[in-house]
């Protein structure tokens, strides 16, 4: 009975508070006893960290200098220098040409608000009048971006995918199970992670309550995308934010339980979502261009299983967005999933 009380939440919280304040008091006393040293009002840890940073900065500067010298040694011969000059001239010329062409195009556009502006054409009318019966989506915006302009949305999802790919290339640090660095750029193990407050009980309790609701809200927005405002992008962003909150509260061991959020899982989920999107759109383009009847009908407008391919495509986009947000967060913070 007594043991159970020892480990109850209020007791643990009390212990945490008391331990923290005692440690702070001891620290203060030690500093006071040490008296006025070389750096009187800075704790040891901060000094050490500053020194370390200084050292790392010096090393990085040296590296950069070496690369610079090496590059310039290569440009010593006359011919190479001439080629370089020509290249610079051509590049400047090309950039000026592009800027001029763009500015000329802008100056030829009709003034904003004029009735013959390209925005006021028959396409918008068609979307509003025939959108419901052609796509079956009550939410006209979802019908537009995932049916009429689904190819454009595939491009947007691919932009997210490419962004996370480049971040992976630049920032990925391979960690072993205990958090040590296996491979990665030099100095990548020395991150700020260890200075951050960890295992905060208040945040953990809040996350336990809030995260399920946040994930549920995100799923609702994704699954109801063709009926109400929302869809894959906004719902995925909500889900990603919930995952980030959970990681902040419980650490990476919490999300890595059941191997749900590993690198391989991320790779396969993103690939599967994008591939399914592309395949299903291929199918619908094929049937539409050849005037065939698609297997996936539009259904009755307003029910959850309606609007043809919009619901599965929303789910795909939602997965890609959620994984991208979570991946960005973890990569920028730690360098691995």
């Amino acid at each position: 009975m007594k043991k159970k009380n020892e480990n109850s939440r209020p007791r643990r919280f009390e212990k945490w508070v008391v331990k923290g304040s005692a440690a702070l008091d001891r620290h203060l006393m030690r500093e006071l006893e040490a008296g006025v040293g070389e750096k009187p009002f800075e704790s040891e840890r901060i000094v050490r960290r500053e020194e370390h940073r200084e050292e790392m900065r010096a090393r990085a500067w040296l590296n950069e200098r070496l690369i610079y010298i090496k590059l310039h040694e290569r440009m010593r011969t006359k011919g190479e220098r001439r080629i370089h000059a020509v290249y610079m001239l051509l590049a400047t010329f090309a950039v000026i040409l592009i800027i001029g062409a763009l500015l000329y195009t802008v100056s030829q556009m009709p003034p904003s608000g004029s009735p013959d502006a390209p925005a006021f054409n028959t396409v918008a009318e068609r979307y509003i009048e025939n959108g419901l019966e052609e796509t079956g989506a009550v939410n006209i915006v979802a019908g537009m971006i995932l049916d009429y302009r689904a190819f454009d949305t595939l491009g947007e999802s691919n932009v997210l995918f490419l962004a996370i790919c480049s971040v992976l290339l630049l920032l990925r640090v391979k960690l072993d199970r205990k958090g040590g660095v296996v491979e990665g750029p030099p100095g990548s193990g020395e991150d700020d992670l260890r200075y951050e407050p960890q295992d905060d009980m208040i945040l953990q309790n809040l996350a336990d309550v809030l995260v399920p609701f946040i994930l549920l809200l995100g799923l609702y927005i994704v699954f109801n995308g063709h009926l109400s405002p929302g869809g894959g992008f906004s719902g995925g962003a909500v889900m990603g934010a919930g995952l980030i909150l959970y990681v902040n509260a419980h650490g990476y061991s919490g999300t890595r339980r059941f191997r749900l959020f590993s690198y391989g899982m991320f790779r396969w989920a993103t690939f599967a979502a994008l591939a399914f999107y592309a395949m299903s759109k291929c199918y619908s383009f094929f049937t539409g261009a050849n005037h065939l009847k698609s297997i996936v009908g539009t259904g009755t407008a307003g029910s959850i299983f309606s609007a043809g391919l919009i619901l599965p495509l929303n789910i795909c986009v939602g997965f890609v967005v959620a994984f991208t947000m979570y991946g960005f967060y973890t990569l920028f913070r730690k360098g691995d999933f």
Partner: peptide
Amino acid sequence: CTSPISSHLIARLVLASENIK
């Protein structure tokens, strides 16, 4: 729920990283 906790976390981070004295 969220706003006081974000303030709390900022305070802890400041306590850990800034030269508060």
